[in-house]
Amino acid sequence: MEKRTIKNTDLQIAPINFGGNVFGWTLDEKQSFDILDKFTGEGFNFIDTADTYSWWVNGKGGQSEEIIGKWMKSRGKRNDLVIATKVGSETKEHGFDISKKHILKSVDESLQRLQTDHIDLYYTHFDDKITPVEETLQAYDEIIKAGKVRYIAASNISPERLRASFEASKKNNLPKYVALQPHYNLMEREGFEKNYAPLAEEFGLSVFPYWSLASGFLTGKYRSEDDLSKSQRGEGARKYLNNKGMEVLKALDEISAKHNTKPATVALSWLLAQPLITAPIVSATSESQLETLFAAPKLQLENDDLELLNKASQ
C-alpha cells in the first residue's frame, strides 16, 4: 500500500487513521484485538487514541490506551506502527488542562498504559484557553528532548491560539505542531474550510479529520428518527436528518451504486481527494465496517462524482 508522509516528519502512514475511541467502549479487549489484527493485517499502521478514551464509561479514561498497549506488546508490532495519543481533555476529575505540570504527568501515564517508550504523535486534545502557549510548547520541548514524544500536533484549538503557537515556536525556538485534527466531513465543511484550511496550508500541516463519517450518518444507516436506535452512537446523527443530509445521502447512494461500493467508502474517498487531507480518522466495530475503510484508498472518484458531492454538501 502506498504510504503518505506526515509533513515535516519521517513518519510514514497508510492513508486511513484508525480511531481508538471504540476500544473499551463499544469493543471489549478481545474484540479490539481482533479489529487491530485485521486493520494492521491489511497494511494499515496508523492508530489514534487519547488519554481520556473512554472516560464516558468509567469517568477517567485510559481503557483505549491500555488495550492498544496490551495488543502491541502481545504482537510485538510497536516498530511497525505510528501511534498518536492526546493530552488536555476534560474528565470528571479535572477540566481541560494543557499546563506544563499536567502534560509532564500525563505523558508518563500514557506511556505506561501504552507499554511503550515513545509516542509518535502527541496532540493537544483541547485548549484550556488559559495556559500560555509558550508554557505548553516548553512542556513538549522537554518531553521531545527526553525521547518520550517524537512530534506534536493540535486538535481542538482556536485559529487564533494555533497561530499564536506557531509564532511562539518561531520566536522561542520551540517545537512546532506538524499536524491538525479538525472536525471535517461532508456534513461539516465550513468550520475547517473557512477557519483552518488556510492555516494548514500556511504552516504545512498534515490534516487528520475526526468524525469523518459524521457520527455514522454518512454510512447511510440513519435515514429517519426510527433508525437512530440502531446503535449506541445513533443519537449523534440526529442533527443531520435534514434536507442537506438527505441530499448528501442521495449523492452517496448514486455514486456508490455507480462504483459498486458503500456510501461510507465514497465519503472517505471524498476526504482523501481533498488536497489538504492526509488520512481521515475512522472507527470500525466489525469486519464488514473494516472492509468499507479498506476500500476507500482504492476508490478513485471521478470529477463528476466530486462535483455532485460538493454541490450536495455545500
Rank of each mutant, 00 (worst) to 15 (best):
E2P: 08
R4I: 13
I6M: 07
T9R: 08
T9L: 07
L11S: 07
Q12E: 10
P15Y: 08
P15A: 09
G20S: 09
N21T: 15
G24F: 02
G24D: 01
W25T: 14
T26N: 13
L27E: 01
D28W: 14
K30V: 15
D34K: 14
L36A: 12
L36E: 13
D37N: 15
K38E: 14
F39C: 08
T40D: 14
G41C: 09
T49L: 05
T49V: 12
Y53M: 13
W55I: 07
W56G: 04
Q63V: 03
E65Y: 10
E65W: 11
E66W: 09
I68M: 08
K70P: 06
W71M: 06
M72Y: 12
S74A: 15
R75W: 03
G76D: 14
N79C: 13
D80V: 09
D80Y: 07
V82G: 00
V82P: 00
A84F: 07
T85N: 09
K86M: 10
E90R: 15
T91D: 09
T91I: 10
T91V: 11
E93G: 13
E93W: 12
E93V: 14
F96V: 14
D97A: 10
H102E: 02
H102I: 05
L104T: 03
K105I: 08
V107A: 00
Q112N: 13
R113D: 07
Q115R: 15
Q115K: 15
T116C: 10
I119Y: 03
L121W: 07
Y122N: 02
D128N: 10
T131D: 02
T131H: 09
E135W: 01
T136F: 01
A139H: 01
A139E: 04
A139F: 00
Y140P: 02
K148H: 03
R150Q: 15
R150F: 12
S155R: 01
N156V: 13
N156L: 13
I157L: 09
S158C: 10
P159K: 13
A164L: 11
S165V: 02
F166Q: 08
K170M: 05
N173K: 15
Y177F: 14
A179K: 02
P182K: 02
M187R: 07
F192E: 00
E193C: 11
Y196H: 04
P198E: 11
L199F: 05
A200V: 03
E201P: 01
G204T: 04
V207A: 03
P209Q: 08
W211G: 04
S212Q: 07
L213F: 13
F217V: 00
F217D: 00
L218S: 07
G220I: 08
G220H: 07
K221M: 02
S231V: 05
Q232Y: 15
R233D: 12
G234M: 06
G234Q: 09
E235T: 10
E235N: 15
G236S: 09
L241H: 05
N242A: 06
N242T: 06
N243W: 09
G245R: 03
E247I: 00
L249Y: 04
L249I: 05
A251N: 03
L252Q: 06
D253L: 03
E254H: 14
E254F: 07
T261W: 04
P263F: 03
T265K: 09
A267K: 03
A267N: 01
L271S: 10
A273E: 09
S283G: 15
S288P: 11
L293R: 05
F294N: 13
A295H: 10
K298V: 11
K298L: 15
E302V: 04
N303V: 05
E307F: 04
L309E: 07
